[in-house]
Amino acid sequence: MKIERIAQAGSLESCDILITVEPSKPKTGIHIHLESPAVKQFGDRIKSEITEVVKRLEIQNVKIIAIDKGSLEYCIKARTETALRRASGE
């Protein structure tokens, strides 16, 4: 899958996450900027959950901005996938 435009999924409601996806140049890899109230306790885990979805969709280069409000794993994965699919023009 290829990221062609900026897209979003999610919200800033409590227990949700707002994922913004932007295209990036070839060979720049996956970049994730994360803000979360639980960044110390769960920062690495949230990033790896996002990365997992990106890799599953076979995306090599993307910039992701994640503003977390205490979301759980299934929410993070669903929001990430939706944002990526919207950005790919599917």
Partner: peptide
């Protein structure tokens, strides 16, 4: 189970 694991201990 809901959060898939334990949070990291603070440093």
């Amino acid at each position: 189970d809901l959060i898939s694991g334990k949070p990291k201990k603070p440093k």
